[in-house]
Every structure is written in C-alpha cells, then in structure tokens.
Nucleic acid binder design. Structure first.
Length: 767
DNA sequence: CAGTGAGCGAGCTTCCGCTTGACTT
C-alpha cells in the first residue's frame, strides 16, 4: 500500500513525476477542474451573497470516484496542481469533493518538472490559500453572470443560439472595428524612385529620399536628372546587433507556427499536445518565458558542442504581460540533444521550430554592419540613398529567424561596393514606380491571439477554443478573398530617354484571414450600445485588478461581485424592456417593378434582402445574401440579382432542370439529384445544353467510382472514395483492410467484413 | 444543396478555464 497520494492536473505530468518520487508515492491526475458551476441555468444564488452551486460533471465522476478511494487509503495527500488562481481552486475543490482531512492534506507547488524542483516542493508544503481560491471563484462567477445574462438578451433581440461573454465579445469587437477601418480606407499613391548607379567597384541601387505624389512632378524630376552629375556625398557605417526572441509561450508558438508553417491555432495546439504526451516538449499551455536551470545548462552544452562557445550567451527572459500567472516553464524541448523527434511530418516540423527557438534564445547576438551611402547631384534635388546590411557574425541567426506579420519592405543590396566620399558615380537607370498605401491588415487567428494577449484577455488554454467559438457562432469567417487587379504606372529614365508603361498587379488577395459577418457586426453594435463596460478593451484588466486584491486578502469576493452585478443587471433589464430588435437594417432603394422598398437586414435565419414590408397586405419577398456579400456593402443591383434564382432552364429525360445556388455553390437540380456547376458556368446564364452536359459528366464520374458490383445484392458496392476504396451496403459504409486488394473481394468476404464491423458499436454522433 | 422571414409560447440555446478523451466516414 502506497502511503502518499500526489494529485496533479495532467496525466503526462503524473507519469513523469512518479518516476522522480519512487516507492511510497502514487501520482494521479485529476484532469483539470473536477467541479464547476452547474451547466443548467445560472447556478449562482444571487440573493444569498452569490453563493455558487457546484456539481461534479458526468465525465469527471469516474476520476473523482477513483481519487476518493485512493485518498481514503493514503496517509498523506499532496495536492500538486499549478500555482496559479485556477490551480489553487482545483486543489480546493479536490479537498472539498474528496472530503480530505486537513491534517492529512498538504499543498505543494513547483514551476518546472525536474527532480530537484519536486523534492524541494515536498519539503516545503503549505495550506490551501483560500484568498487565491476566492479570486478564482470571483472570476468564475463574474464570467457566468456576464455570459448567462447577456446571451439571452441576444436571443431575444437579435437571433437565438447566439452568445456573449467577457472574452469572445471583445474578440469579435476587435475584428469588427478593424473591418470598418479597412472599409473606410482610401488608398493613396506615390512614386518610389530608385536609381541604379555604377561605381568602379560595383553597381548598386539607391532610393530617392523623397516620395512624389504627382506624376507630373515625377516627369520633371526625371527630366532634370538627364543632364545630372552624381557623386558620393556621404558614407556611414554603423555596427548594430540583433537579439534572439524569448522561447515560446502558447501565444508566440501559435503566431510563429501560423506564420512559418501555416498552422491554425487549433492544429498547433493539437500537435503540441501530442509532442507533450510523448515527452518531447514541456507543457504547451503557458504564459511564461522562463527556462529552468536544468534547461539553461543543457542548452549551453548543446550550443557549445554544436556551434562553439562563441555562439552561446546565457539569457533570462522576463514576461512582459502583467496578466501572466507563470505556473509553468516556457515551451521547450525536454531534451535539447534531440534536434529531431520521430513523429509525423507536421509534429516534427513543430518540434523543430520549438527546438530552434529555445536554443536560439540562449545564443549570442548577431552582429551587423549597416551602411548608408548618400548620392548628391548637380541639380540640388533630393539625395539618393543606398542602404546595405552585412552580417559580420551570425550568432543566433545561424539557426533561427523570427517571422513577422508585417509585409516586408523591398530590401536593398546586402553588400554595397567600397566607395569614398567624393567619388563620382554613373547613373544607368532611374525607375519611378507607382506604389499604393495599404489598408490595415485583417487579423489572422494567430494575430488575434497576440492582440488578445496584449490586452490581457483570455488564457493560454482558451485562445484556440475562443477562436473556434466565434467562428462557430457565425460572428466571424475565415474567407478566401480573391485579389483584384489594379493598374499602376512605371516611368523609366534610361539612356537619356523617358518612357512610361502601364502595368497591372493583383492586390488584396487574402486567405486565412478573419473577417466579421453581418451578425458579428450587428451583435457588436448592439452590445457596444447597451453594455459599454463589458465591451471596453480595458474591462478584463480592471476586473483582474479586483481579483488580485481578493487574492491578496484586501477585498471580499462577494463584495466585488455585488458592486459589479448591480449596475450590470440593471442594464440587462433596461435593454430587455426598452431596446428595439437589432437587425442592422439598411435601405437600398425601391424595387423598379413594384416600387416597394428594398432593405438588407438580419432575419431569424441570417442576412436577407427583403422587398416590401411585413405589415403590407402582400407578403414581402425574401432572398438570402450570398457568401462574400454583406449588408454594409451590397447595392440595389446586386440585391435584385438575388431574386432571379431559381431558374427553370428546360427539360431533360422528362424531368425539369432547376438552377440555383445552395450551401455548396451553384447547382442544377434534376430528378431530385443535385449536380454542382463548375466555375465556368454562371447560374444566371447557363442553358439547358450546358446543364445536360454537367449531368452526364457527373453520371460518368459516379460510374467510375464503382469498382465492383454484385448480383447477389444490388445495394452492395465496392467504391472508390476520398479515403480510398470502401464497401457500401445499405446506408452504411465499411472499411477494407489495407492489405486487401478490393478487386479480389467476393460476395462472402464482403459480408464477413460487414458483419465484423457491425459488431463494433457505432458511436453517437456529435451534433 | 429546402424554405423559413411577424408574434405568441412551449423549451431549447449561453460563459471562461482547467484537463484529455474516442470518433473516423
């Protein structure tokens, strides 16, 4: 019988720690919070000092049962959850639910999973810090009050199933405001003037130190350069340094994985979880940039051995964000000697990124030399300037270059020729290119996480789920935006001649960027109008201050909640009783046929165009907005287009063909089967002949899909699908073992496979 | 891959932070 029971949050952590502690200790995990506010209803007794009503949820009952029986038999129970607000609460809930005796219970904490850290923790146990627990309860109760009182307001005033909360509503607000900045943005253009200069030691490019707005001005300038003499006016050489970035936290890992590997935040976290469970990396949900002494030392050894002593520089990083709770280390490899780990390709690419970033964080600065050459001219016009950058010692750049969200400015030559002040240079060519200012960038998942972290909103464990939630609620979409072509002018002076040419470029193409939907905008406006406090970017920071005071014992949690709840609940009441429905209604014009008003608005089922009023005798006509159309931007003409579908375009095999646009794009409906129209075919103009072609092609493809048919059973088919060959029988599909050639299967062997797989119970589907 | 779209009323939805499952068509 083990005398000691240690409880930690994560099973992977339990496994590691058990090895360190040896005999006499059993280490178990509680899988995070074991108890929470009841899911149904608000579950807070508001009249009685906001007493929370907790319950052990169904999926935690088994764990709790097991821990309870182990705790009964143990002499000492060590509560080793994380040392932060949530971790303290987990320990407290454990002690309550498991009914632990105080004399048998010890609370311990450690920030790194090393043997010495754990043994030290065991030597220094303490009691549960009730103030910290109260701070967590205040956090929990506040979030429940906000979420469960605001959401129903939206159900009533906007659309059912919507949600609002301290974190998600502000995240959507960020996107809405950015989108409006983009919409209001007016690009302006100017000419960037670059000259190519020849010096006995080499040819290089230099940019004119002034942007010119008007084309006329550019011609004047180029003309005056025709007869110009150029010489080196000034030369500066400045040494500079680049520092490596801190090792990864959850948020910076998500950002770099998005920039460098193109992973969504969810994908990054899934892969990191696998690496963590395999023991390759430390915990992946952290806000700390701290490295343990063990890590510092082994990074040093690896750097010295692989790159040499001059590449090592020991560094300790400090966390900037003041909302950080630092219960863990930074994300790093558990073993720096492993530059690669055996895993699938995405996992190993993520691991390599983590390895490089952590190692680079302990490497020396890169040393650079920045050179600027200024060229004057005999016409007293602005100077041309050439900028060059040479790496004199690569340092950490040997292995890691940090990504950036901003688009890179066009870079100039790395290496400039050796020149001296007073040297004459020959001008070979001057190119003036029209450039346009760019609207602020839309957020990516990762750059939104970065912004939220800066505002102190959300936690490492919630960044990815929050992004998922706002998309699931339909507030935000990840859209592929096709670029538009734009004309621009280039004016070139070469061999005493000025030539202009008109060129085109593609601009504004975007993918994986987040943009708010109409619902997102309407909900944000509605909440901004009625719940200013909650929507304030500083709201979380200000309540965090209160939580800190509670944690330090200066303030009672119920008092804080009381102060918050009174005015909040008041505005909920006022809004419910006095506020009109929020529909985002916009008048587009009159219908040329019926002269009825046409409006765009949110209906119960999303954004629509409505012709006529609901109070009219004749029922109004409705049409849903398409993908890419928004209430803000749609015009009358586009709105009228929407009413031209569905179209009946003729008959085929005695059945009617109906063309329309559905969830998956344009389609032809024929004999109650759907045929998608390809991109070349426009649903508004497609004719019967073209549609018949589409139908025939689809039939041909479907026929090719079938590998084998059986006379014994017409619904039994071997087909070729997206994931390879499979058996379909009745309404269900069945796998074919990898080693089997599908062509060789006969009727009996198919039925055996089906029977085998029918034995495995079908799991309930998630809704 | 429809059609719904008002308002009533039944009963449903919803928050944020800790954790990892068990599903594969």
């Amino acid at each position: 019988m083990k005398k000691n029971l240690v409880i930690v949050e994560s099973p992977a952590k339990a496994k590691t720690i058990e090895k360190f502690l040896g005999d006499g200790f059993v280490v178990k995990s509680c899988f995070g919070h074991i108890r929470d506010l009841n899911k149904k209803g608000i579950s807070i007794d508001i009249e009685n000092g906001f007493k929370p009503i907790y319950e052990v949820s169904d999926d935690k009952k088994k764990v709790v049962q097991e821990l309870k029986s182990l705790a009964k038999k143990a002499e000492t129970i060590w509560l080793a959850s994380d040392e932060d607000r949530e971790g303290e609460a987990i320990s407290w809930h454990l002690s309550e639910v498991l009914e632990l005796e105080e004399s048998k219970t010890k609370r311990i904490v450690f920030h790194e999973i090393t043997k010495s850290a754990i043994l030290k923790a065991i030597e220094n146990p303490r009691n549960i810090n009730k103030d910290l627990v109260d701070a967590q309860q205040a956090r929990r109760i506040l979030d429940r009050l906000v979420g469960y009182e605001l959401s129903p307001v939206l159900w009533k005033k906007v659309k059912p199933q919507l949600s609002a909360g301290r974190v998600q509503s502000v995240a959507v607000r960020l996107l809405v405001e950015r989108e409006r900045e983009i919409q209001a943005f007016q690009p302006s253009s100017s000419f960037k003037i670059v000259g190519v200069f020849k010096h006995p030691n080499g040819t290089f490019r230099a940019e004119l130190d002034k942007k010119n707005e008007a084309e006329k001005e550019v011609y004047g300038l180029l003309n005056s350069f025709k007869s110009c003499q150029f010489e080196i006016d000034d030369l500066t050489v400045k040494p500079s340094q680049k520092k490596p970035s801190a090792p990864f936290t959850t948020s910076t890992l998500q950002q770099e994985a998005s920039r460098k590997l193109g992973f969504s935040v969810t994908r990054t976290m899934l892969l990191a979880q696998k690496l963590y469970e395999a023991g390759h990396i430390t915990y992946m949900r952290t806000d700390s940039v701290n490295l343990s002494d063990f890590a510092l030392q082994s990074a040093e050894e690896v750097i010295n051995a692989n790159y040499g002593k001059e590449y090592h520089q020991k560094r300790k990083y400090n966390t900037k964000s003041n909302s950080a709770q630092e219960a863990h280390e930074a994300i790093r490899p558990t073993n720096f000697n492993k530059k690669n780990v055996p895993a699938d390709s995405s996992e190993s690419r993520l691991y390599e990124l983590i390895w490089k970033r952590a190692i680079a964080s302990q490497m020396s600065n890169a040393l650079l030399e920045k050179t600027t050459i200024a060229i004057n001219n005999s016409q007293d016009k602005p100077l041309f300037k050439a900028k060059g950058e040479v790496v004199t010692f690569d340092g950490f750049l040997k292995i890691y270059l940090q990504g950036s969200d901003e688009e890179q400015e066009e870079t100039f030559d790395d290496l400039l020729p050796k020149v001296s002040v007073g040297d004459g240079v020959m001008n070979e060519k001057i190119t003036a290119t029209q450039r346009f200012t760019r609207h602020p960038a839309r957020f990516t998942e990762a750059s939104l996480v970065k912004k939220l972290e800066e505002l102190g909103i959300g936690r490492p464990s919630t960044y990815a789920p929050t992004i998922t939630t706002i998309q699931k609620r339909g507030y935000v979409e990840k859209e592929i935006k096709e670029g538009k072509t734009r004309n621009y002018t280039q004016i070139i002076l070469q061999a005493q001649e000025i030539k202009a040419q008109n060129l085109t470029e593609i601009t504004g193409a975007e993918k994986n960027k987040l943009s708010p939907t109409d619902i997102g905008k309407v909900v944000t406006d509605f909440l901004n109008e009625n719940f200013k406090t909650i929507m304030d970017y500083g709201f979380t920071a200000s309540v965090e201050k209160n939580f800190d005071e509670i944690a330090q014992g200066y303030k009672k949690w119920s008092k804080m909640i009381d102060e918050f709840y009174d005015p909040f609940h008041q505005s909920v009441d006022t809004t419910l009783n006095h506020s009109a429905r929020a529909t985002g209604e916009r008048f587009l014009g009159e219908d040329p046929q019926s002269s009825k008003p046409i409006i765009a608005r949110i209906s119960r089922f999303g954004p629509v165009i409505q012709i006529g009023k609901t109070e009219d005798n004749e029922k109004p006509k409705f049409a849903n907005l398409r993908k890419g159309q928004t209430i803000d931007t749609i015009n009358l003409e586009e709105a009228l287009e929407l009413f031209k579908l569905p179209r009946i375009i003729g008959n085929f095999e005695e059945n009617e063909m109906k063309v329309s646009i559905g969830r998956f794009g344009p389609y032809v409906l024929h004999d109650s089967k759907f045929y998608s129209l390809n991109k070349e075919l426009d649903p508004y103009t497609v004719n019967a002949e073209e549609a018949i072609e589409v139908i025939k092609e689809k039939r041909k493809r479907d026929a090719e899909k079938i590998i084998k048919k059986f006379d014994e059973e017409p619904t039994l088919l071997i087909q070729n699908g997206r994931w390879g060959p499979y058996i379909s029988f009745g309404k269900r599909n069945y796998k074919i073992p990898k080693e089997t050639d599908p062509k060789t299967l006969d009727y009996e062997s198919c039925m055996t496979l089906i029977e085998e797989q029918n034995k495995i119970p079908k799991k309930r589907k998630k809704k």
